[in-house]
C-alpha cells in the first residue's frame, strides 16, 4: 500500500512541476514588500509606544507611591502628539491621521478642500500611466469628474478622483490580492452621496468620495466595510438598487442550489452623512430558483452600482 506521505510529496512535486515557469502576478512582489514594510513600521511604532507607556506607568506608580513633596508631573512624551492643523484653502495636503485598515496597516490618503465651486484645485492630477474613466459629478459642481486607478513604481495601487475643477484626491489600496482591481463610481441614497466600489475579485470595498477625499467606509466594528465576493459565506457581489428614485447600496449573495439554480439575497446598506459609516439592514431573499444566466444572478456575482459595472464602466488597474 502506498504511504500517504509519499503520495502527498509526489503530488506536491507534480504541482510544482506544473507551476514551473509561473511567475507571481505583476506587481505582487512589490505589493507584498510594501505591506511588509508597513507591518514592520507599525510593529516598531507599537513597540515604541508600548515602551513609553510602560515607562509612564512605572513613573506614575513611583510618583503616586512617594509621600510628601509632590510636584505636578511633566507632560509625558508620547508617540503621537501632533494635532492636525486646518487645511489651507486651496492647498491640499496628505491626511494627518490615517485610519487603520482591517489588516492593521495605515492607509495613506490625499485630500482636497470642498468649496461652492467644487473641490479646490491641486493634488498633482492624474498619475502617469493610470487608467482613467469619466464618472459622475463627485464634487457637486455640475460637471462630470474622472476616476482613476494607478500602479505606482513600487507596485502600490492607488485609487483617486480628479475633478473637473482640477482637484485630485486619492487613497492607497491595501489588498494582498494579486488580481487587478477595478472600480465604479456612483451617487447613492437620497442625499446623492458619492461613493466608489473597488473590486479586488475576491472581495470589494466601498469608499466615500464626499468632502473631496477618498475615505474608507467603516462597518459597525470600525473596520473597513468589505464585501465578500464568494470566498466567505457573506456574499458574492455588491450592487445598488433603485428605490424611490435613489440608488441604495446593497450586498448581494447568490447561493447555488443542488439543482443548479440560484437563490439570491440582498442586504441594503445605509450610509451615514458623508458616508463614513455603514449599517446593514436585514437580509432579504429577492429571487429563488433563478437560472445561472438570469440578470439577478449575474448582478449578484458582480460589483456594480445601478447600470455601472466595475471593470466595464470604471477604471481598471493597469499592470506594471
Amino acid at each position: 500500500m502506498p504511504d500517504l506521505g509519499d503520495m502527498l510529496w509526489r503530488a506536491e512535486r507534480a504541482l510544482e512541476s506544473g507551476y514551473t515557469g509561473r511567475a507571481a502576478a505583476p506587481g505582487a512582489v512589490a505589493r507584498a514588500k510594501r505591506l511588509v514594510r508597513r507591518r514592520r513600521t507599525l510593529r516598531h511604532w507599537g513597540e515604541g509606544v508600548g515602551a513609553v507607556a510602560a515607562v509612564g506607568v512605572v513613573g506614575a506608580v513611583v510618583w503616586l507611591g512617594a509621600p510628601g513633596d509632590r510636584e505636578p508631573p511633566l507632560p509625558a512624551a508620547t508617540g503621537s502628539t501632533a494635532a492636525s492643523s486646518p487645511t489651507p484653502t486651496g492647498e491640499p495636503e496628505p491626511s494627518a491621521d490615517p485610519e487603520p485598515t482591517e489588516s492593521g496597516a495605515a492607509t495613506p490618503t490625499f485630500t482636497s478642500t470642498p468649496t461652492a465651486a467644487g473641490c479646490s484645485p491641486g493634488g498633482g492630477g492624474v498619475p502617469v500611466g493610470a487608467d482613467v474613466r469619466q464618472v459622475v459629478d463627485v464634487d457637486g459642481d455640475g460637471r462630470p469628474d474622472r476616476a482613476w486607478l494607478a500602479t505606482e513604481d513600487d507596485g502600490q495601487r492607488r485609487f483617486g478622483i480628479t475633478t473637473a475643477s482640477g482637484a485630485t484626491f486619492w487613497i492607497d489600496i491595501e489588498s494582498a490580492s494579486p488580481i487587478q482591481a477595478s472600480a465604479v463610481v456612483q451617487l447613492v441614497q437620497s442625499d446623492h452621496v458619492p461613493i466608489a466600489l473597488v473590486d479586488f475579485s475576491r472581495s470589494a470595498q466601498v469608499y466615500s468620495l464626499a468632502g473631496c477625499a477618498v475615505t474608507e467606509v467603516l462597518n459597525a466594528q470600525g473596520l473597513p466595510y468589505t464585501f465578500d465576493r464568494g470566498m466567505g459565506d457573506q456574499g458574492t457581489g455588491a450592487g445598488c438598487t433603485l428605490v424611490g428614485g435613489a440608488l441604495r447600496l446593497a450586498g448581494l449573495d447568490a447561493v447555488r442550489n443542488p439543482d443548479g439554480t440560484y437563490d439570491v439575497s440582498r442586504t441594503f446598506i445605509d450610509l451615514d452623512a458623508g458616508a463614513r459609516h455603514a449599517t446593514n439592514e436585514s437580509r432579504v431573499v429577492v429571487a429563488r430558483g433563478a437560472k445561472a444566466d438570469a440578470p439577478v444572478v449575474v448582478t449578484a456575482s458582480e460589483v456594480s452600482c445601478g447600470e455601472l459595472v466595475a471593470g466595464r464602466d470604471g477604471p481598471v488597474q493597469p499592470m506594471p
Partner: peptide, 10 residues
C-alpha cells in the same frame, strides 16, 4: 514561486 504555489494548491 512554483514550489510555494504547489504547497498552496494542496
Amino acid at each position: 514561486y512554483a514550489r510555494l504555489l504547489a504547497r498552496a494548491a494542496l
